[in-house]
Design a protein around this nucleic acid. Structure first.
Lengths: 133, 133
DNA sequence: ACTCCAATTGAAAGATTTTTTCATCTACAA
DNA sequence: TTGTAGATGAAAAAATCTTTCAATTGGAGT
């Protein structure tokens, strides 16, 4: 339950006028507890929260930009939007690793959009992990 | 049915020992006919192909790397993997536009992986489109 | 061209995932 | 405290995806 990212997320939730219910906090804590988790894993971390509520919380959080939804194969995954990092996805075994160093040229990024206001970006790298080579 | 990308995809299919059935060609043509289409749109372009076969074709194509599966919100989308471009996704209206100019620094990209062999990447930009501003 | 067979298809059934409904409950502002 | 708009959850419904299996067919070999 500790962690700056978790606290910041709760603050944003409250700030937008939504109630910080135990269920929402539980889902948020579950998401905070790992990276790029599948729905199944998140549900396992807060079994006391009903399925419907988990779906609704995920929709709410992604809508508010608190949580990011990812498609890295095998269904959607979720993680806190707060920390900016990217993913290495192995096309053979499906494993996922993170890396911090963002290889996006932010200068040319701002130019690319034209009149599109860029607020965030996601980058995934696909290939083969060291184990599969 | 014309188009270099379509032809190359058929070639790759045959080259991997898979039969180029009318159904598979129809699905491939449907995908080639647009960008980042949803399953629904693809199905509408080849209504003569059974649902099961469309699912199987999409699995096969994405497995072979002929087709890329995307998550830009509102369920999976598909497009030919051939042409390298990225997406601008509007968080307000959900519209998607493409852009060609890749703002990823390929030099630092190759360094980022370490012993991970990077074969492809996908980049999406999220924000607000000109209409929603 | 013809034959043959492994690969492919599709209808139906089944499983899984997601959404809707609605009665009940609760976080929190006053 | 209390009142209430917002939130929850069980059940049902809807949507989505997969399995099964008998029938069909693309295309290699002749």
């Amino acid at each position: 339950m500790s962690g700056l990212r978790y606290e910041a997320a709760v603050g944003k939730l409250r700030g937008c006028g939504y109630k910080a219910t135990p269920q929402r906090l539980a889902v948020l804590a579950a998401i905070s507890a790992g990276q790029h988790q599948r729905l199944e894993e998140i549900r396992a971390r807060c079994p006391e929260v009903g399925m419907v509520t988990v779906y609704r919380a995920l929709d709410l959080f992604t809508g508010l930009g608190i949580v990011r939804r990812l498609d890295l194969g095998q269904g959607p995954r979720y993680e806190l939007a707060e920390d900016h990092h990217h993913h290495l996805v192995c096309e053979d075994c499906g494993s996922v690793k993170e890396f911090e160093r963002c290889p996006v040229d932010l200068q040319s990024l701002s130019r690319v959009g034209g009149d599109f206001e860029v607020r965030a970006h996601s980058l995934e790298l696909y290939g083969r992990c060291s184990d599969c080579r």
